[in-house]
């Protein structure tokens, strides 16, 4: 009798079926299940509610839940597709799918553009680029003179802003990345190819479910 209900597994709010997520991403079903193990770990590190909060994301990235970072904030916001302040499992898998080595390059290019379009105006503005350079320097304890920063930003802008309107649009970005492919190197996580090796405990969970 009780057996029917014993297979009830506690799922996070926002949990989605691995088969569905696998059909929409480069992951296989077992890789999505492995990602669920990672997700459970990340989403219970501070607040045990099955959702990844900003502090938990920061803790995973920096081993410090209070360490704020402009880029980590942007990544978090892009993963949080529903904009409700937390990352749900489906959002986590779909977003990480973009970082899969087999994901379309166009998706990676578009994601990087959104990341750098800080104020979501549809363009990367000169001010935004400068703000990001300053944030990086600050994070790395590097000091460059105002002149050098201006030179770096201007030079990059001159190369990327081909129509010279003072902002980089998605087409210009695409073109710029095709000339400088290393710019989206960080949009690929080789780890994602071996995710079932990295988080093998899903096998155990699957067996528990199947045993019913």
């Amino acid at each position: 009798m009780g057996c029917v209900y014993s297979k009830k597994v506690r799922r996070s709010p926002g949990y989605e079926e691995p088969a569905l997520l696998a059909s929409e991403t480069p992951f296989t079903v077992s890789e999505v299940e492995a990602l669920y193990e990672l997700f459970k770990k990340l989403s219970s590190s501070i607040i045990n509610d099955g959702l990844i909060h900003k502090e938990e994301f920061q803790l995973a990235l920096f081993k410090n839940s209070n360490r704020r970072n402009l880029f980590a904030d942007r990544v978090f916001d892009l993963f949080d597709v529903k904009r409700n302040g937390v990352i749900e499992f489906g959002e986590f898998v779909r977003s990480l799918g973009i970082f899969h080595p087999n994901a379309p390059i166009a998706d990676k290019v578009a994601f990087a553009f959104k990341l750098y379009d800080l104020r979501q105006t549809g363009y990367i503005e000169r001010e935004e680029l400068k703000e990001m350079v300053l944030a990086l320097l600050n994070e790395s304890d590097l000091t460059l003179s105002e002149d050098v920063v201006e030179t770096i930003v201007n030079k990059t802008f001159n190369e990327a802003d081909s129509n010279g309107d003072g902002r980089i649009d998605p087409e210009e970005w695409k073109e710029f990345v095709s000339r400088n492919p290393s710019l989206i190197k960080n949009m690929t996580l080789p780890y994602l190819k071996d995710i079932t090796i990295a988080f093998p405990s899903f096998v155990l969970n699957s067996e528990v479910e199947d045993a019913d």
Binding site: L38, L42, A60, L61, F62, N69, L70, F71, A72, D73, R74, V75, L96, F99, L115, Y116, L129, M132, V133, A135, L136, E139, S140, L144, V148, T151, I152, V153, K155, T156, F157, E159, A160, F176, N180, S182, L183, K185, N186, L189, P190, Y191, I195, A198
Partner: peptide, 25 residues
């Protein structure tokens, strides 16, 4: 030679963009 650096290349080295740390146990 920072002057010849591409700003986006520089930015991409941010620790906040290094998501591989999410997979560290």
């Amino acid at each position: 030679r920072p002057v010849t650096m591409n700003a986006f290349e520089l930015i991409s080295t941010s620790q906040g963009l290094n998501l591989s740390t999410l997979f560290e146990k």
